[in-house]
């Protein structure tokens, strides 16, 4: 069995462990679930490293490699938040997310090909790493928004549980989502800026309204709007509870844009002219 299959399975087991931890809250289930996710993350990291050694270049030259790295970042960003805050159920969905990304990677062409000259740049390295961390954070905020919306729709009004500083309850996941987006947004910005500098170095122009560039701007705008709306909604006679639902829905939508920018641009009629879209050149 190949390492990618093993990693997928460990992600699934980790996800089950997180659900178990939601049901039986103990130190034991906590460390088992975290341990399993760390194991999956390490396997994923081994895969990334192995690939980059075999290929002889940083492992982001095609969609297959980028997806594997993306899955790795998703687990990584989740684990960071796991160590800051204590939120169990998110882990179950985060590892499912990482697993789905890996499964999607297995559908891609995994041939090692020599990289084209334009990709041989340190700017490109920083560009991809920061972007992937940004995207991964948005993936996690997608998960927290889903949970928030579900809880909002089905949970009874009064919940006796009290929140301490480290433990955020699902009914307050709107705040958590904001924190995660706030964590990821600087990475997205850095990714965009380093991408522009790299484009300037390689193609002579930092911005040429290429479809990939335009869609990454759309993505950035989507999260910029999210970060500014909390300043607007209170002034518009919208009550707090409704505002939080709107924002959570917006995050679901914004994550769809992220995915479109990442893998969906081939469906655009302008894709044929693009320099940057995977698989179009």
């Amino acid at each position: 069995m190949s390492i990618i299959n093993i990693t997928v399975i460990v992600y699934v087991i980790a996800s089950i462990a997180y659900i178990a931890r939601e049901i039986w809250r103990s130190m034991y289930t906590k460390w088992v679930s975290v341990g399993l996710l760390i194991l999956a993350f390490c396997l994923n990291l081994v895969m990334v490293t192995k690939r980059s050694i075999e290929a002889g270049h940083p492992p982001f030259s095609n969609l297959y490699e980028s997806l594997i790295f993306y899955a790795c970042c998703t687990a990584f960003v989740y684990l960071i938040f796991e160590f800051i805050y204590n939120f169990r159920v998110v882990g179950a969905l985060a590892s499912v997310l990482a697993m789905l990304i890996l499964l999607y990677a297995t559908l891609q062409d995994d041939t090692i090909r020599p990289i084209m000259p334009a990709l041989k740049s340190n700017w490109m390295l920083v560009h991809v790493i920061t972007y992937m961390i940004g995207y991964a954070s948005f993936g996690i905020s997608f998960v927290t928004s889903i949970i928030f919306l579900i809880v909002k729709a089905f949970a009874k009004k009064e919940n006796k549980e009290v929140e301490n500083e480290r433990e955020i309850l699902p009914r307050n996941f709107d705040k958590l989502s904001y924190k995660i987006v706030a964590f990821g947004f600087p990475f997205l910005t850095l990714g965009m800026v380093t991408g522009a500098v790299w484009a300037k170095k390689a193609w002579g122009d930092y911005w040429s309204w290429d479809p990939k560039e335009t869609w990454s701007l759309i993505t950035w705008f989507a999260y910029l709007v999210y970060l500014h709306t909390p300043l607007v909604l209170p002034k518009m006679n919208i009550n707090k509870s409704k505002a939080s639902v709107i924002l959570a829905c917006w995050l679901l939508f914004a994550f769809a844009i992220v995915n479109f920018t990442f893998v969906g641009l081939n469906y655009l009629p302008s894709a044929a002219d693009s320099e940057h879209i995977y698989g179009s050149k």
Binding site: W209, P211, T214, W215, L217, I218, F221, A222, L224, V225, H228, L268, P269, S270, D273
Partner: peptide, 17 residues
């Protein structure tokens, strides 16, 4: 404005430029 720019950007990639 940002939302309008988003719409413009989408049009600019859906319609060949």
């Amino acid at each position: 404005i940002i939302l309008l720019l988003v719409v413009a950007c989408i049009l600019g990639t859906v319609i060949l430029q």
